[in-house]
Design a protein around this nucleic acid. Structure first.
Length: 669
RNA sequence: GCGCGUGUAGCUCAGUUGGAUAGAGCAACCGCCUCCUAAGCGGUAGGCCCCUGGUUCGAAUCCAGGCACGCGCGCCA
């Protein structure tokens, strides 16, 4: 792992600069350590001379020279080589770093006491999950893995909006279109495919509303019934949402996505979280009662629009009310933003109220899953007590970019309630939506060429039933993988082939969801997602499997177990690691060691594609090495040993990187 | 109208918070399975980094102004 090395290099250079120039510690700019574009320049590059050029009013090239001369031979790094316009490059002790990489795995970074809550998935529990939800869950889950990798303790929450319009619509569907009673619906939930059934029903309800506007009154009634727990609608909703949530959990489990807590909106209502939040909002002056005008009788929050404030002009044509956000309607009901404020306060432990909790089930990995509850009867003594949820130091809300405006309001509300720290630590992890490529939309019969507007993609719409269901996609990809595995490894048992196919499918889908920048709309293309060649998850797995097979065979033939051969490596000529060896072995080792640096960068920028691109590039390096440099067949014992060491380091780091992306390494491919 | 985002090879996208020769994948074309798995590798071809100006040792990257596209802006969630 390379970050500690960076830190040591930085501190040594800092002392050199301090002794050389009259600069306080604070006025030394941060020392950036980069990768030189070409290995012949060095193993690491430092750009500090460029940073200092302005301050010292000297050319960077000269500064680099001065630093290099003053530094002499640095401990562990040797000379600083001034090159180019002012880079300072170092060559590392390659043999030592390679031996370190093989040594006992370093202890995981200590878990910090502070806890981070990550909220993701949050699918309306009224229909099957689709590809857009997969992007959310994959990003959210990968973020959690990265945070834990860095030693942060993470609590994963999945928000269940069980009292919203979408659920109300499906309730209306069961009652008004299907005329089903509670018993009928219960029977339906016992059959497979209930989420698919609701997918269609939801689309039918939408059409049914469109045929006659008066029918929308059914939605209003149902919505009120849900909020106030009035049967039969409330009971129907409870049965439907419980089943759909379990369907979603099953879908996500297929991608190795798990949670700690399901937060049900209904509990927020029943436990009167909102009432408490409302008191705080009022007493802090964050909201006020609007009198007169269009919003008369509403409790509103002023929206801080910096652009408007800076302009400062009278803006006479701009309605001042457009800068007010309604939090409580004139009929006394609370809006979505209001409920969200209450929930966010609870996450930080700032609400002064807590949920009750109920056991929801054990997930495939064995991890317990809890759900919030508003049942006040105490848990039976036999039951395990729930962990302490909430009270986070920071919160990531993984929600698509269309909700940026609302997420912004949320932070503003916290600020207005005199919780600036919580506001600052409420991070909206935003990402663009998943749409359908033209080809895929057409294949699904969703692209009407007569109405073709020439857009490069077609937006998914759950309301219209337009989209690719997550389980359909998973099934297709898994089947495809299974036939590939079968054609290559007929000797494996059907169970093993299926298991491998599942691992491949997971990697294919998860990698696909991670590899794009979060600010890019994904035009989902089924053929692209089904491909296992080029920049795909299976490519990464394949490289890792190959590396493992080499090590396996080597152990069987030569009995080489690398961690037992460290001393032998120390006394073996490391010529294989020099540039003149020309096989990219050292490049492979150095690049493998950068995983911690990349993980750090990915979290800092919330750009998980960085991790994906790095892992892909690393796999490419290995494949190049694989073709140029035989390991088992290498006659020179020393060269063979060093190469084996490189393969081992690669396999170890690659396995970790894949784990971070929620992917496993199949035993064969 | 206002806000946010995007514009890089035929297509889909990277480009390390201003750095060394702008890179991948797909598609196209040409090669490589007696050799650790060809889900692989090598090679060829393909670029006014949307436009114009500015900032400086240096700009695809930062600033200003345009252009194009997407999303958001409700007493919906």
């Amino acid at each position: 792992m390379i970050l500690p090395l960076h830190a040591r290099l930085r501190s040594q250079i800092t002392s050199v600069i301090q002794s050389l120039y009259d600069l306080g510690t604070e006025s030394i700019p941060p020392i950036v350590v980069e990768q030189p574009p070409n290995r012949r320049f060095g193993d690491l590059a430092v750009t500090i001379a460029f940073e200092l050029a302005r301050r010292l009013k000297k050319p960077p090239r000269l500064i680099a020279q001065e630093i290099s001369e003053a530094a002499g031979d640095l401990k562990e790094f040797g000379r600083l080589h001034p090159t180019g316009a002012g880079y300072l490059n170092v060559f590392l002790d390659r043999a030592a770093l390679t031996r370190d990489g093989l040594g006992k795995p370093q202890p995981a970074p200590q878990t910090q006491a502070l806890k981070i809550i990550v909220e993701h998935t949050a699918i309306n529990p009224n229909k099957a999950a689709h590809v857009g939800h997969l992007r959310n869950a994959t990003l959210g889950d990968t973020l959690c893995r990265l945070l834990r990798f860095r030693g942060t303790s993470v609590e994963v929450q999945n928000y269940i909006d069980d009292t919203g319009v979408q659920v109300a619509d499906v309730v209306v569907g069961f009652r008004e279109l299907e005329h089903q009673n509670i018993e009928d619906i219960k029977q339906l939930t016992d059959k497979p495919g209930f989420d698919y059934y609701c997918w269609d029903l939801y689309a039918r309800v939408t059409t049914w509303y469109e045929e006659n506007d008066n029918r929308l009154s059914h939605r209003r009634t149902a919505l009120e019934d849900l909020e106030h727990g009035i049967d039969p609608s409330a009971s129907i909703a409870r049965i439907v949402t419980d089943k759909i949530v379990r369907c979603h959990l099953n879908t996500m489990a297929r991608l190795d996505v798990e949670y700690d807590l399901l937060s049900w909106e209904g509990d927020i209502l029943r436990l009167a979280f909102w009432d408490r939040a409302f008191e705080v909002l009022k007493s802090s002056g964050a909201v006020f009662l609007q009198q007169g005008g269009r919003l008369s009788g509403c409790w509103v929050m002023p929206i801080g629009d910096t652009a408007v404030e800076v302009a400062g002009d009278e803006e006479s044509d701009l309605d001042p009310e457009t800068r007010l956000k309604v939090i409580v309607r004139s009929n006394g009901t609370v809006t979505y933003v209001g409920k969200d404020i209450a929930y966010q306060l609870w996450k930080f432990g700032l609400l002064g109220l807590d949920f009750n909790y109920r056991w929801f089930g054990r997930q495939p990995s064995g991890r317990p899953l809890w759900a919030t509850s508003s049942d006040t009867t105490p848990n039976s003594a036999k039951q395990v007590p729930p962990p302490a949820f909430g009270h986070a130091e920071g919160v990531y809300n993984v929600i698509d970019t269309r909700q940026s405006y609302l997420q912004d309001l949320l932070a503003q509300a916290l600020e207005a309630m005199d919780h600036p720290l919580a506001a600052e630590r409420s991070v909206h992890f935003s990402y663009e939506m998943v749409a359908l490529s033209r080809a895929t939309a057409q294949a699904l019969g969703h692209l009407d060429l007569t109405l073709d507007n020439g857009k490069p993609f077609v937006e998914v719409s759950g309301r219209k039933g337009l989209g690719v269901k997550a389980d359909d996609l998973l099934n297709q990809v898994t089947d495809r993988a299974e036939s590939e595995v079968s054609s290559r490894h007929a000797d494996l048992s059907p169970e093993t082939r299926r298991e491998i196919a599942t691992q491949i499918a997971t990697a294919a889908i998860r990698y696909f969801m991670i590899k794009f920048s979060r600010s890019k709309v994904i035009a989902f293309d089924i053929d692209e997602a089904l491909s296992f060649e080029g920049e795909t998850g299976p490519y990464l797995q394949y490289a890792t499997v190959r590396a493992r097979r080499i090590l396996e065979k080597l152990e069987n033939r030569d009995g080489i177990e690398l961690h037992n051969r460290l001393e032998e490596l120390a006394s073996t000529s490391s010529d294989s690691l020099t540039a003149s060896a020309g096989d990219g072995l050292w490049d492979l080792i150095l690049e493998s060691s950068r995983l911690d640096e990349i993980a750090e960068q990915s979290v800092r920028s919330l750009e998980l594609s960085t991790l994906a691109k790095y892992t892909f590039g690393l796999a490419q390096k290995f494949n190049g090495f694989y073709h140029s440099s035989p390991v088992i067949g290498e006659p020179n014992a020393g060269t063979r040993l060093w190469r084996a060491a490189g393969v081992k380091i690669f396999a170890t780091q690659m396995t970790k990187a894949l784990q971070l992306m929620g992917c496993q390494v199949p035993e064969r491919m």
